[in-house]
């Protein structure tokens, strides 16, 4: 047996055992260190395995359908262990009881990214939302009047140029979905959350799980973590970020065609409405202290201000293409 062949055999053995409760990472490290050819052999195995996993659906379609009923001969497994792979299990998984749950999670890990680099751009009209399933199985819903691009295949990177998108991210600890918006990066593992980027404001709300938010290119240590029920509203120009609380049930309410508020400042409501309206919306100081509770129906966006006016003591004035909301009469 040649050295290359031996290295390949050992690499395959190590690769097949990565998720084993008996996996000895230190031993694996020693094997990798022992000879540079080991690393190359392992790379080849891991890349091939990932490729097959990535093409699983296409391969399944080509396989003959009648593929069960034949037992696995146990003797097939009687292949000698490669080198040190069978040695030492000094180092074991700590909590046996939960390792099954972990293994189940890790089973997804090797589903590798596909068509990296190709950007898919989605643009929605003013009364149209769009639902997209990403290559990693996560779901993205895009709000009206939005422009969103997706790159990265199995490790998606989503850029929200304008508008909003909400995400239901498939639970997979090794694949982080990243959303870029307004100069910030939101990273997430297995979560439902919403990112709005519109008119100089970035707002992130988390319904489930946890996300991290950093300025693009910022240090990791600067990350702000958001848990379920938390929101972060950023005004990038002013370098202001405000953390708030939100009822998880209200996150990405726009997916239902409504905007749902409970005592929200009028400025926040106006910022949301701005996403759907033709013109920028500004809250004048006289109305800045007002709060709104209730549900607005988005429709094509043109009736939102009217709905607000019906319940709040405000007027809407259009000045030079900008709609100003101010207090109506003495309060």
């Amino acid at each position: 047996m040649t050295d290359t062949r031996m290295a390949t055999d050992a690499a395959a053995t190590w690769h097949a055992r990565l998720d084993s409760p008996d996996m000895d990472w230190e031993d694996f490290g020693r094997w990798l260190d022992a000879d540079p050819s080991h690393r190359a052999a392992y790379d080849a195995i891991a890349v091939l395995d990932a490729e097959i996993g990535e093409r699983a659906a296409a391969i399944a379609a080509l396989l003959p359908a009648n593929d069960d009923e034949v037992a696995v001969p146990a003797s097939d497994a009687g292949v000698p262990d490669a080198g040190s792979a069978s040695r030492g299990t000094r180092w074991r998984w700590a909590a046996i009881g939960t390792s099954g749950a972990l293994a189940a999670g890790l089973a997804l890990l090797l589903v590798a990214p596909s068509n990296d680099g190709a950007a898919q751009v989605y643009a929605t009209g003013r009364s149209e939302t769009r639902s997209v399933t990403l290559d990693d199985g996560s779901r993205m819903q895009i709000d009206r009047g939005s422009r969103v691009s997706v790159t990265g295949g199995g490790t998606p990177v989503i850029e929200i140029a304008q508008g909003a998108a909400s995400f239901a991210v498939r639970h997979d600890p090794s694949r982080v979905l990243m959303v870029r918006a307004g100069g910030y990066e939101v990273r997430d593992v297995g979560t439902r959350f919403d990112v709005v980027s519109a008119r100089g404001r970035v707002a992130i709300t988390v319904a489930q799980g946890m996300v991290s938010v950093v300025p693009s290119g910022g240090a990791i240590g600067d990350a702000t973590m958001l848990n379920a029920g938390q929101s972060l509203t950023i005004t990038p120009d002013k370098q202001i970020a405000i953390r708030g609380r939100i009822d998880p049930a209200r996150v990405a309410d726009w997916t239902d065609g409504r905007l749902d508020y409970d005592g929200a400042p009028l400025t926040l409501v106006a910022a949301d409405i701005s996403r759907y309206a033709d013109s920028p919306l500004v809250v004048d100081p006289s109305a800045a202290d007002l709060r709104f509770s209730g549900v607005l129906t988005i429709g094509d966006g043109s009736r939102l201000v009217d709905q607000l006016r019906a319940v709040l003591p405000i007027r809407a004035r259009r000045v030079a293409g900008v709609v100003h909301l101010d207090a109506a009469g003495p309060r």
Binding site: A46, W93, T98, L102, L109, L110, P173, S174, V189, M210
Partner: peptide
């Protein structure tokens, strides 16, 4: 992480890193 209980954090960290390298 909000990813549920992790039986062996060190193995998990290795595993995550393996995928990053891949």
């Amino acid at each position: 992480p909000g990813a549920g209980p992790i039986a062996n954090p060190l193995a998990y960290l290795h595993r995550v890193g393996m995928n990053i390298v891949l």
